[in-house]
Design a protein around this nucleic acid. Sequence first.
DNA 1: TCATGTGAAGAGCTTCACAGCA
DNA 2: TGCTGTGAAGCTCTTCACATGA
Lengths: 211, 211
Amino acid sequence: MVNRNGDVPKSVIRRLPVYLRTLDILIRNEQEIVSSRELSEKTGFTAEQIRKDLTFFGAFGTRGTGYTVKYLRDMILKIIGLDERTSIVVVGVGHLGTALIRYNVTKNPYVNVVAAFDVDPSVVDKDILGVKVLHISKMKEVMKEYNIKVAILTVNTESAQEAVEYIIKSGIRVIFNFAPVKLIVPENVHVHNADLSIELQSLIYYATVEK
Amino acid sequence: MVNRNGDVPKSVIRRLPVYLRTLDILIRNEQEIVSSRELSEKTGFTAEQIRKDLTFFGAFGTRGTGYTVKYLRDMILKIIGLDERTSIVVVGVGHLGTALIRYNVTKNPYVNVVAAFDVDPSVVDKDILGVKVLHISKMKEVMKEYNIKVAILTVNTESAQEAVEYIIKSGIRVIFNFAPVKLIVPENVHVHNADLSIELQSLIYYATVEK
DNA sequence: TCATGTGAAGAGCTTCACAGCA
DNA sequence: TGCTGTGAAGCTCTTCACATGA
């Protein structure tokens, strides 16, 4: 029922969690059916785009009626690969790393930070909202215990490549990188860069140019 | 010499700060000339793409030779609209806001955080690496004193729309939004969303699917 | 000769228009 | 009738291939 072969546009994958969040709000409001038009109003994407996005994975709706909210939510969870115990780790427990741990622990219902890593003795063994900070050499052990899907990388520029080696050795294949460098990784490792200075600088352009 | 009319792809604007950072590193190493091929190796974008990106704004290179590093850096600064005194503010001084202030103050050479805003009396009047936290009602005053280009929004979901009203009233037209909501803004206001839970959830997909 | 600058072709994604079905 | 599902058209951005000029 859920088709997951490779020819899905990246932009579709980026929109799925937005649909998921909207559906969760509808579930909380006990709404049972939703149309692509209503999802469009709530997410800002066009109704056609939402319908087309979903058909990459199957036909989940009922013509003339719409989509069953809970069913569609469950299908999207399956497509993304989320379940109650989706585990990640944070590597680098400075200000940004700490803030992301707190942010994620409180705001992200589907993804659990199971551990954080650093090399600095002054943060190792600390506890951040129940997340233990361990020395980076213990990453492989933790990886064995949990099935870690993603590593969030928030170390400084100088340590980034070295930290990546630890991450890859421990078997993690997806990295959410906040360090302002181009990481060198094997072909089968997926890096997503969130370079905040870069994004901020590119925004300055829109502050200066008329829309 | 620098053309800045509207038909420039968004993706080009996102790459310009990456070129900028690379050029700054070359300047530090006292390299005077750089080819699109070398920029390609350092940034990960193709040489053709880099050349095409630059020609949206003019012809900055010399055939057979390459680009003069300092000249190209200055042209990109002009294109983006960056100068020594490009000013921004941070709205919402929780963990994430505080981390972003520290991160930006230390890591972003072109953009200065001139003030932060909150409503919580326990953070108002604090000082974060020289950035003063003010009550949100004072935003308009600060806007008069400095020419604020961008507001980084790091308040919680519930306060986000209200904070946006303050931001827009004070005349700021570009918002870098970290709150997980679709902000409602007038047409001439540019919102860039950095929704970390959403990005993290979409990454889970790549952890589960084979590349 | 070598690297830039650029029309044309191609790929990827979105929008349109309507067929299909409850 | 109403809303989903979907080929086709359209648009945006990237890659190609080569003309241009130091």
